[in-house]
Structures are given as C-alpha cells and as structure tokens.
C-alpha cells in the first residue's frame, strides 16, 4: 500500500511539470480546424504549421481577441464555397488578452526551417513603381480578380474567392508573401490561386505593394 502511494506520488510529480507545460494551443483545440503540422490531412481553417513565418505577431494577438473575416467567401475547401454559402462558417472563438498573448507566442514558434525567399527591409515604392505595380496587380497577374485590395484612392476593390489583402500589410510578413508568390506549393498542395513564374523584381514589387495595404489607409 505504501509502495503504491509512492508510485502514485512519483507519477504525479513526474506528470505535473508536463501538464503545466501543455500548450494553450492544445487546450484551446486549435488543431480541430487548423493543421499544426504539415503531415496532417487538410483541415477547414487556414494552415498554422508555418504561422511563425506568415503572421505579424501584433496582428495575430489582436485577431485572436477580436477575430474578423479575412476569407469573405469562406475556406476554399468548404462545400458551400463555390455557391457563396459559408457552410462551415462558425465564428472564430475570441480569446482573452492574456490567452491571446500566450497563443500568439506558441503560434509564432511554429515555423518552417527554411523559406523559399527572405526579404530584407522594404524600401518605400516610388511613384513610377506604384503605377507599374497597379498595372501588374490588376492586369498582368489579375490578382484583383480574386483578392480585395485598396485602389489608389484607398477604396476597397476586388474579388472575394481569395483572402482579402486589405489589411495584409499589418497581417503578413513580407518574406512570407514573397515566398508564397515564389513557391506556393511549399505551403499548400491545394490552393485555387494560379502559380506564377515572375521575375524577382516583379515579385519584390508585389511584396512591397502588399505591405502597403493597411486598414488605416482605407478611405
């Protein structure tokens, strides 16, 4: 009986630190809708196994407390997606400030070891580049057909099948945007976006442009 108690105590002592280290991501059941590792099957929510490469921590922390819609037509895998019905549209749960901080920390630790492209500090776009980029975003690459963005007057324009880019400059890391444009299949084997083979310069310009899209620039 005494031995058994020791065993129980020992087990408890051993398990306790593990329990307190159990992640909040697990506790909040994020993995029910999001892939936290590349080996899992596709899930209804956006992949998070590269969240640390993709998101800006400050945005993530805000989003988790006050979730807003980014994919206006729902997830591309939703059964109702093409019909304009959001079949799986549960609202994203909102977390307390403290939990959002902790989950952000844990998500930012989920990273791919190597990104297809690393982008250094972005120079502001010149006037000429701005005209060029507008042409490319709307015409050469037809981005605007599926993505909402801001036009030169700060008005929201564009299609809805892709995620909105209206606040992408606050949401996404530049290196991730460039990496996605260079090699989308690194991140997702299934996406409805065309694959582009663009010049490095064009990719950088697009990345720079997307970094300028922010809610505060909306008119």
């Amino acid at each position: 009986m005494k031995n058994f108690l020791y065993l129980l105590m020992g087990g408890w002592l051993l398990c306790n630190p593990m329990l307190s280290h159990a992640s909040l991501i697990q506790e909040k059941k994020c993995s029910e809708c999001h892939r936290l590792s590349k080996d899992e099957n596709e899930k209804s929510g956006p992949d998070l196994f590269y969240a640390g490469n993709k998101f800006q921590a400050s945005w993530l922390k805000q989003y988790l407390q006050n979730p807003m819609t980014i994919r206006i037509a729902g997830g591309t895998g939703d059964p109702g997606f093409l019909k304009g019905i959001q079949a799986n549209s549960q609202k994203h749960p909102a977390l307390s400030k403290k939990d959002a901080g902790q989950v952000t920390k844990e998500l930012m630790a989920l990273m791919l070891l190597e990104l297809p492209e690393e982008v250094d500090l972005l120079e502001p776009l010149t006037k000429g580049q701005k005209a060029k980029i507008k042409y490319e975003f709307e015409r050469t690459f037809s981005c605007i057909s599926c993505h909402q963005s801001l036009n030169l007057a700060g008005k929201v324009r564009g299609g809805i099948s892709g995620p909105s880019l209206v606040n992408a400059g606050n949401r996404l890391q530049a290196s991730w945007v460039a990496s996605w444009l260079k090699s989308p299949r690194t991140f997702s084997s299934k996406s409805r976006m065309p694959i582009y083979k663009m010049e490095d310069e064009a990719r950088l310009r697009l990345t720079q442009f997307i970094a300028t899209l922010k809610n505060e620039n909306k008119r």
Partner: peptide, 23 residues
C-alpha cells in the same frame, strides 16, 4: 474546372461564379 475556373465562371460555367459581380 470546378477547382480553378468555377470561382469566376460558375459551377455550371454560366459566368456567375462568386467573383463575377466584383469584376
């Protein structure tokens, strides 16, 4: 066609995909 094209051209190809009214 359903995966890539229907988002604009519609499920039955009638030009009424979910992006249609924004173009």
């Amino acid at each position: 066609y359903q995966w890539y094209c229907a988002q604009c051209h519609g499920i039955q190809g009638k030009g009424d995909g979910i992006n249609a009214k924004f173009l």
